[in-house]
Design a protein around this nucleic acid. Structure first.
Ligand code: MN
Ligand code: MN
Ligand code: ZN
Ligand code: ZN
Lengths: 139, 139
DNA sequence: ATATTAAATGCAACTATGTTGCAATACTAA
DNA sequence: TTAGTATTGCAACATAGTTGCATTTAATAT
């Protein structure tokens, strides 16, 4: 039984920092999503009533990123896309980006590597492989 | 004798479209630069007098991109970086991005490839490899 | 050289994503 | 329950990039 809400709360509680409804809601949304989604898409998925303020959502996303619950990718639309981290998510990461609908999908199985050396004095910290093209719906 | 101004004019003239001082100036700046540079950086390099309008600069850059005289990359700063295309520039491309100064460098020798298959129905058009870390000056 | 015409430019206003300062609120631990 | 601190909401801001429209300019025809 996969309960994103429960799981999100558990994850945040376990990390020892403050457990707020905003953080739980947002992480739950991301856990339930396979794609990397934007601030705007998350905002639409948030239950109404007293909806989370958009500035707070930005801050929650930044916090989730710092705590390594999620990672973020910028697409050619110049918008951050957020995705919950799976245990396998590492500093070598591949993404697919649809050139038509701007959807971003994490290619979790694909590993990013490089062969040639970097210019002298350059240090590598993260490697990201980006495949651009058309997603199944847009092809 | 490498004369960017002359070369830029020649390239634009040869493509059969309108030759304007703006297009020449901007392409010349990009031909003389090894890094991928932003709109803002290009603006600063433009000779004053009646400086090219910033909207026009955006349109010139877009035009140069469409005509394949340049390509553009978005970095984690969410800003477009432009670089003149060399003959070897292809749809498989690698970039280094400094996590501190946001400098973007095209790794022309490095080739981007992937091994695992894409999700069903997905089509690849371009592959980009992004190495993030610290540049020689920031390391 | 001059007139003609379509494309490129400048300007003002606009959109969108994301940020900052500060007062009000809500977690957490005593 | 209370106190102290982290989080939230709000308003205002910053900045990259876009759009509509009137004006100018490059290329072509006369
Ligand atoms: Mn990812
Ligand atoms: Mn490049
Ligand atoms: Zn698509
Ligand atoms: Zn640097």
């Amino acid at each position: 039984m996969f309960n994103p809400q429960k799981q999100a709360e558990e994850m945040i509680r376990r990390c020892g920092e403050r457990v707020t409804t905003g953080r739980i809601q947002v992480l739950a949304i991301l856990l339930a999503e396979q794609r990397a989604v934007t601030h705007h898409e998350i905002e639409k998925r948030l239950s109404d009533k007293p909806r989370l303020n958009r500035v707070t959502l930005y801050r929650v996303l930044e916090w989730l990123n710092e705590k390594c619950f999620v990672h973020k990718v910028v697409g050619d639309d110049r918008i951050w896309h957020f995705r919950a981290n799976s245990p396998t998510t590492y500093h070598q990461h591949a993404h697919f980006e649809c050139m038509r609908c701007t959807r971003v999908v994490c290619l979790d199985d694909m590993k990013a590597e490089y062969d040639s050396p970097l210019p002298a004095g350059y240090q590598s910290r993260e490697i990201e492989l980006r495949v651009k093209g058309l997603c199944a719906e847009c092809a």
